Computed example of a mutant assay.
Amino acid sequence: MSQLPRLFDPAQIARNLQRRPASDNFVLDLVLDDLADRLGAHMRAFSRAVLIGPDADRLPKTLHTGSGPVNLSVVEAFSGTEFPDVPEGPHDLIISLLHLQAVDDVPGHLARLRAQLAPDGLLMAAFIGGESLTELREAFLSADLAISGGASARIAPMVQVRDAGALLQRAGFALPVADVETHVVRYGTPFALMAELKALGAANPLVDRPRRFATRTLLAAAAEAYAQKDADADGRIRATLEIVWIAGWVPHESQQKPLRPGSAKVSMTQMLGDKS
């Protein structure tokens, strides 16, 4: 079996996070607020729960479902290893935040998480995907083509929400659900956006990244292309951020199952009426 190509460099991601200045992480805050709402909609108690995410010391140790508090074992997502140091299972809930966007083999990673869950256990995950940072990607592509005549890998590929549910199914999860939360963030200049990405530890995580720093000429050309295409009337530029959410359950006999083909007892004609 051929080995999957490596796209991401986990050790470099860990170094990026260690080097960044201490600052608020508004993306993590957005995701945690959304997680509280989503988990609160479940009328279920979880006794063995794990929360995987960046900035482990900032992650909550307790969340709530509609049935009460859930105590969490918190695990750092970006420790420099390929797979987080998840406590030995089985668990009945695993939550992964802002990690899957930097995983090479997403179905394989999800399958490893599934192996840590008990039957009827729940996986919830949120990751940056979809059309995130499309504006910045296009600006750098335009600048690279204008200056060097070619393109370099500067922004990681993104998983689309339309593919997310299929990834869960490939990993063996039942009742898969996928949706996306879209945010449009505005900045004074493209350089302000780049500075915030660096402050979030989101510098280029790719194995095949350029080994030299971007030149001032390239950065200026990218900023100009960005402002020309994606600036509002007041001069501020737009940046799209899409958070893809997925959820799936480890199969269990108690779960709902689709009816067998041909087992329906009422015909479509009876439901809609005879239109002939």
Rank of each mutant, 00 (worst) to 15 (best):
S2N: 04
P5R: 06
P5V: 06
D9Y: 02
P10C: 14
A11D: 15
Q12S: 14
N16F: 10
R20H: 08
A22R: 14
A22N: 01
S23L: 08
S23Y: 04
D24P: 00
L30W: 08
A36L: 04
D37H: 06
R38A: 02
G40K: 03
A41W: 09
A41F: 02
M43N: 12
F46G: 02
A49R: 06
V50H: 06
L51G: 03
P54G: 03
P54Q: 11
P54T: 08
A56E: 15
L59D: 11
K61S: 13
T65S: 08
T65W: 04
S67D: 09
P69L: 05
S73W: 10
A77V: 10
G80N: 14
G80T: 13
F83I: 15
F83M: 15
D85A: 15
P87F: 13
H91T: 15
S96M: 09
L97P: 00
L97E: 08
L98H: 04
L98D: 05
D104F: 09
D104M: 11
D105R: 12
P107G: 11
R114F: 10
L117E: 12
A118V: 10
P119K: 12
P119R: 15
L123K: 12
A126L: 01
F127R: 01
F127Q: 02
I128L: 12
I128S: 00
I128R: 00
G130L: 07
E131C: 04
S132Q: 06
S132T: 08
L133M: 12
E135T: 02
A139F: 09
L141N: 11
S142H: 04
L145R: 09
A146R: 13
G149P: 09
S152V: 08
A153L: 11
A156D: 06
V159W: 10
Q160I: 02
D163N: 03
A174C: 03
A174N: 05
V177T: 01
T182D: 10
V184S: 13
V184Y: 00
V184M: 06
F191C: 00
L193I: 09
A195I: 05
E196P: 00
E196V: 05
A199L: 10
A199R: 14
L200G: 00
L200A: 02
N204V: 06
L206Y: 09
D208I: 08
R209C: 13
F213M: 14
A214D: 11
R216F: 02
T217H: 01
T217C: 00
L218C: 12
L218H: 12
L219A: 03
L219V: 11
L219H: 00
A223V: 05
A225Q: 03
Y226V: 02
A227M: 08
D230S: 05
D232F: 02
A233I: 10
D234T: 11
R236T: 13
R236H: 14
I237F: 10
R238W: 06
L241H: 02
I243L: 06
W245L: 06
A247Q: 15
A247Y: 02
A247T: 13
W249Y: 13
H252P: 04
S254T: 15
Q255I: 06
Q256C: 01
Q256E: 07
Q256A: 14
Q256K: 12
K265N: 03
S267W: 04
Q270E: 14
M271A: 01
M271S: 00
L272I: 04
D274W: 04
D274M: 05
K275G: 00
S276D: 11
